[in-house]
């Protein structure tokens, strides 16, 4: 028997209720929202900017959420709204890093901005699987847009419309990016078939 308390509709209602209370200054409600969505926000950030900067992006995301809750009207799922904020901060950070390289200048022909996402030490070691190494390397080699679309759609289970909202683009563009991401990943993971 399915548990209605954990259905997507019920989860969304719970989020809206917590957001309503947090908007009115209830810090406990906001802490609950952080608990509920922190893992996905941090995971998404880590895949975009790398583990070293994921903490900062997650922090910036929740600071923005706390100070901007008045702008959340419930038109989209709270998780989608949060991931949109995270994507903005990640894009900003990637642009900044591209303009202010800390090491040798990157080769402009490189496919994507790679900030060591595959060096996720504890997370990856916990699995201890060579497949994870290959997967993370393959993900790092994807352009950021494709990587984000694949993570949001295939890993986190967002709808095409939600991915488009997070990425501030169209559903058509998401479908295209996702198709290219899946093709590239399948090709790079071919040895594991």
């Amino acid at each position: 028997m399915s548990d209605l308390r954990h259905s997507p509709a019920h989860e969304a209602e719970a989020d809206d209720e917590l957001a309503r209370r947090a908007r009115l200054g209830d810090k406990r409600a906001f802490a609950d929202l952080v608990d509920r969505h922190g893992p996905v926000v941090h995971r998404f950030a880590a895949r975009l900017v790398g583990p070293d900067e994921a903490d900062d992006v997650a922090q910036e995301t929740f600071v923005t959420a706390w100070t901007s809750l008045d702008r959340y009207r419930g038109a989209s799922a709270f998780r989608t709204w949060l991931l949109g904020i995270a994507a903005n901060h990640a894009r900003h950070r990637l642009r900044w890093d591209a303009r202010h390289p800390r090491g040798p200048l990157p080769d402009p022909d490189e496919p994507a901005t790679v900030l060591g996402a595959h060096d996720a030490g504890p997370d990856r070691r916990a699995i201890g699987d060579a497949f994870v190494d290959a997967l993370e390397k393959a993900l790092d080699e994807l352009p950021v847009m494709q990587r984000a679309c694949w993570i949001l759609r295939d890993v986190e289970g967002l709808s095409y419309a939600e991915v488009a909202e997070v990425q501030a683009t169209t559903v058509t563009a998401v479908r295209g990016a996702l198709h290219r991401a899946r093709t590239a990943l399948a090709s790079r993971l071919e040895p594991w078939r």
Partner: peptide, 13 residues
């Protein structure tokens, strides 16, 4: 691949 990423522990978080 997707389920592998979902199963990764959230140590960072």
């Amino acid at each position: 691949a997707a389920s592998t990423l979902r199963a990764l522990t959230d140590d960072g978080w």
